[in-house]
């Protein structure tokens, strides 16, 4: 019995703070990314910085999709709300430049939280799950895109808004590529490690349980709708954080930051890295970005064809991502070999 106690105790701490391979990879990744500026020129650095922020965007989707198994096709809406929230509040209202970035950030994240809570409330409490959830959120992105184009007085319409100042806080401006790179990296690291820490704990288990069998989780006393809604809202807030920071780097916002293509791309980034792994979302973003550079340099038209074909393959052959697909095949192969022995 005492033996069992110690086994149980070990197991309990292990599942809370287990150093899974993914955690180790995350630490390595952040360490590598923190020395990258030493070997890069300013132009490359601005590209890497954008990749980090897109990685944060992918992480936000993975928190919801990877753990609950429910695919949101509407995450560009939240990225875009962050972007437009930052742009509109820093251009239209003549706010003091010393704290305009903070106001913009709060407006962007606040907008995303409100929209996610409203939409999420109606669809999650209405029992919409699975493919239906994906379709409703897909429509959400289209609606948001139409608003961004149509409401030109505020959003600048098709041409968007230009002149968003670089992110600044307490008078310090992250104008320099190096500074903005490290800002992106620190924000990403904080979000990534918090997500890993929280989702490796009890909440992660409960979300996995809801994904496996929501009715059962409910009969165990969990308010599953509320848990899903909170996860969705937090995920949307992270997406908007990425969007808001992104436009302080580019200096402009355009309707393609709140469009269906971006929603599709972020799904691909997460899928390439393996959904549910969190750090994989960031790595997947980097891989796809790198491939895009390589393929586009051969032929500009080749990229949309490549990414489109990949998306179709994703849906048809490996809905859980290419990584999981290969792992499953390897496992099945091992099993069949064991069976033959």
């Amino acid at each position: 019995m005492t033996q069992l106690s110690s086994l149980l105790a070990a197991n309990k701490t292990a599942s809370g703070l287990r150093f899974r391979p993914a955690t180790l990879i995350a630490i390595l990744l952040i360490l590598i990314m923190s020395v990258v500026p030493l070997f890069s020129n300013a132009y490359d650095l601005t590209n890497y910085r954008d990749v980090l922020l897109f990685g944060l965007f992918a992480l936000s989707l993975d928190i919801f999709w990877g753990r609950t198994g429910i695919l949101s096709f509407g995450h560009a809406t939240f990225f875009g709300l962050g972007a437009y929230g930052m742009a509109v509040s820093s251009i239209h209202f003549g706010i003091d430049p010393s704290y305009v970035s903070i106001v913009g950030l709060l407006v962007g994240i606040g907008l995303a939280a409100v929209v996610a809570a409203l939409v999420g409330y109606f669809i999650l409490y209405g029992g919409v799950r699975g493919d239906h959830f994906t379709i409703v959120t897909l429509a959400l992105t289209i609606v948001a895109n139409h608003i961004a184009i149509g409401w030109s007085k505020v959003t600048g319409g098709d041409s968007g808004l230009i002149g968003i100042p670089p992110f600044s806080i307490f008078g310090f401006s992250f104008y320099d590529p190096m500074a903005s790179y490290y800002l992106a990296l620190i924000v990403l690291a904080i979000c990534l490690f918090s997500a890993i820490w929280i989702l490796n704990g009890r909440l992660g288990l409960i979300l996995s349980a809801i994904r496996d069998d929501e009715v059962k989780a409910k009969t165990l006393g969990y308010d599953t709708k509320l848990i899903l809604l909170i996860t969705f809202v937090v995920s949307a807030m992270l997406a908007s954080l990425a969007g808001a920071l992104y436009v302080t780097n580019t200096g402009f916002v355009a309707p393609d930051m709140i469009a269906l293509l971006l929603s599709t791309e972020v799904i691909i980034w997460v899928a390439v890295g393996g959904s549910g792994t969190l750090v994989g979302a960031v790595i997947g973003t980097a891989i796809v970005w790198w491939l895009q550079q390589k393929i586009s340099s051969i032929s500009v038209t080749a990229w949309p064809i490549a990414i489109g074909s990949f998306f179709i393959m994703l849906v048809l052959f490996f809905p859980r991502g290419p990584g999981a697909f290969v792992l499953e095949k390897v496992k099945a192969f091992q099993k069949s070999r064991e069976g033959n022995k």
């Binding site: 599942s15 996995s208 349980a209 059962k216 009969t219």
Partner: peptide, 18 residues
């Protein structure tokens, strides 16, 4: 439940933890 409803992707102990 009639059909055993356990959380298939979790371990026995994780099921208990939930």
């Amino acid at each position: 439940f009639q059909v055993p409803s356990v959380f298939e992707s979790l371990t026995v102990f994780e099921n208990f933890q939930v």
